[in-house]
Amino acid sequence: MQPDFIGIEELVWERLSLIPDPEVPVISILDLGVVRNVRYDGNNLEIVITPTYTGCPAMSLFVAEIRAAMHDQGFDQVEIKIVYSPAWTTDWLSSVAKEKLRQYGIAPPVKDVDPENPFAPPPVIPCPRCNSEDTTLVSQFGATACKSLYKCNTCKEPFEYFKHF
């Protein structure tokens, strides 16, 4: 790999870090962890992404926004490859991203006690506003595939929870 290509790849990463998540605009698609690799060979630019949810409607938007951003940077030959393995996990969310989510009012993902067991009790989700652990699940499914709905029994505020996956 020639050194100037590495510089170009770094530029691409930097540009990708400016693309907000279409559903949760406080975090970027890099914070989300969907971009797995960037490769530039002097001619073609290849960007590898992993979908969050198989049916996530934001996926085609990711692709369109990445393409547009790269086009603005002067890359005409952009190949966006979608890979499913290894499966995306919320563990790829950076700690900065988790803090940004909390400040935005969305509780960040909490690890399940026994992730492979569908009958295991769900973990405690602290309220993103007052940190109280006295919260109740209102709905397992929310406005987007990645979130569920909770309410805080201490400050009485409803809030969204970014599911652990």
Binding site: P51, V83, Y84, S85, P86, A87, P115, E116
Partner: peptide, 14 residues
Amino acid sequence: LAGMAGRFLKESIY
């Protein structure tokens, strides 16, 4: 198939 199944499993458990 293995990659897909890993992804689908998380959804199915939910």
